[in-house]
């Protein structure tokens, strides 16, 4: 894949202080109005309201700083592929269960994305399977979800 062609130049640097400022507003307003700030003693809104204000003030300072930053932030499609892959693993776990989905994901990624030889795929899947099933399922007795299959089987 040619990542030079796929790189997209977007300046997202300013969005973080803006989002943080909005979060600060939400936390301080709710802290003061809804949860209570002070009534003879600190109420549940006391602490978040204070730090909401700290976040707002620091976000304004950070915004003034980042608008002078000239360096572009570059994102690459290959990074998005990892995110999409993980999203599919999570969604698939909710449908067919986590353990089957882990093997499907591993095989799919190694074979389709990385063009890995079958033998290597099997070795990697065996090692990961041994860790997941040996440590997490058998020793730690983690009850992994079986998704919709659980309803069918159960």
């Amino acid at each position: 894949m040619n990542q030079q062609k796929q790189s997209v130049k977007i300046t997202t640097r300013i969005f973080i202080p803006i989002c943080m400022f909005l979060i600060g507003i939400v936390f301080s307003v709710l802290g003061f109005k809804q949860y209570g700030f002070w009534d003879h003693e600190p109420k549940p809104g006391f602490f978040p309201a204070i730090f909401g204000i700290v976040l707002m003030v620091s976000s304004v300072l950070a915004f003034m700083q980042v608008i002078h930053e000239t360096e572009k932030v570059e994102y690459h499609f290959c990074e998005l592929e990892v995110i999409i892959g993980a999203a599919m693993l999570i969604i698939g776990s909710m449908i067919i269960g986590m353990i089957p989905m882990i093997f499907i994901y591993l095989f799919g990624w190694l074979k389709i994305m990385e063009k890995t030889p079958l033998k290597t795929c099997i070795i990697i899947m065996a090692i990961v399977g041994a860790i997941v099933i040996g440590v997490f399922v058998m020793w730690l007795q983690v009850q992994f979800p079986w998704g919709l299959l659980e309803n069918v089987i159960g």
């Binding site: 990892v82 892959g85 993980a86 693993l89 999570i90 776990s93 909710m94 986590m98 882990i102 994901y105 591993l106 990624w109 190694l110 990385e114 890995t116 290597t120 990697i124 990961v128 860790i131 997941v132 997490f136 730690l140 983690v142 009850q143 992994f144 979800p145």
Partner: peptide, 21 residues
């Protein structure tokens, strides 16, 4: 090879601590 392996470890590790999706 590390990318899918670590992704699986992250997913399994996150699930095992919370026992929920």
């Amino acid at each position: 090879y590390m990318i899918p392996i670590i992704t699986v470890v992250c997913v399994v590790g996150a699930y095992s601590t919370s026992n929920s999706m």
